[in-house]
Design a protein around this nucleic acid. Structure first.
Length: 199
DNA sequence: CAGAAGATCTGC
DNA sequence: CAGATCTTCTGC
């Protein structure tokens, strides 16, 4: 397993989304380690993308996304959900990849504890807010580094390429009409049991 | 300062 | 399919 270096993130969000599929996303907390294999992500770009929180420039909430690559942008939505993004491109440029779904790869028991009442393991991290719930990620992790020394990171292993080869581009989920809903910036392994499903 | 919309999920 | 629930931004 190889932790992804800074150079991986220091590119536009489309390129990062394409290559992030099949990678592991790891959270090594003080008491436990959880990890998922990413099977669904979405690219968000700044001033070219009305779907991005950073479309109209930086704000206190989106400051992290305008910062250096290789960090986590965590935001709160719908009054109760946290979603995690990987910050891309160079400092000052708003580009990020939303982590939408993953297959549990480590810490399955802890994920079940964090997601009481979810009987089907396929649903543990099949959605951006489900993924953060299963992995214990929230506001304190906004701005956390994914690079050397941090307790969260992305990594490649021997299975990554196999997953990447199956991924396709589709339209992004949950965007209102005219806000970039027509752009095919969602990278997903079609039909994967751990990807998010039609509502 | 008020109002609307939001990168959603669960349970009925 | 509706309810939960609150932050952020926009417009007046």
């Amino acid at each position: 397993m190889r932790r992804l270096p800074r150079a991986f993130y220091a590119r536009d969000a489309i390129s990062v989304a394409r290559d992030l599929i099949g990678c592991l996303f790891v959270h090594a907390g003080p008491e436990d380690v959880t990890a998922v294999r990413l099977v669904e992500v979405e690219a968000y770009r700044g001033d070219q993308d009305p779907g991005s929180h950073g479309f109209r420039g930086p704000s206190p909430r989106t400051r992290t996304m305008f910062g250096p690559p290789g960090h986590l942008y965590v935001y709160f939505t719908y009054g109760m959900h946290w979603c995690a993004n990987v910050v891309c491109d160079r400092e000052g440029v708003c580009e990020a990849v939303l982590l939408r779904a993953g297959e549990p790869a480590e810490g399955l028991d802890m994920m079940r504890v964090r997601r009481p009442g979810i009987a089907d393991d396929r649903l543990l991290a099949a959605g951006p807010a489900r993924l953060t719930l299963a992995m214990g990620i929230g506001k304190p992790h906004d701005g956390a580094s994914l690079l050397r020394g941090g307790s969260m990171w992305c990594a490649e292993d021997e299975a990554t390429e196999r997953h990447r080869a199956r991924a396709v581009w589709t339209r992004r989920i949950g965007l209102a009409a005219g806000r970039g809903d027509d752009l095919e910036w969602r990278r997903v392994i079609p039909g994967h049991p751990h990807a998010s499903r039609r509502r």
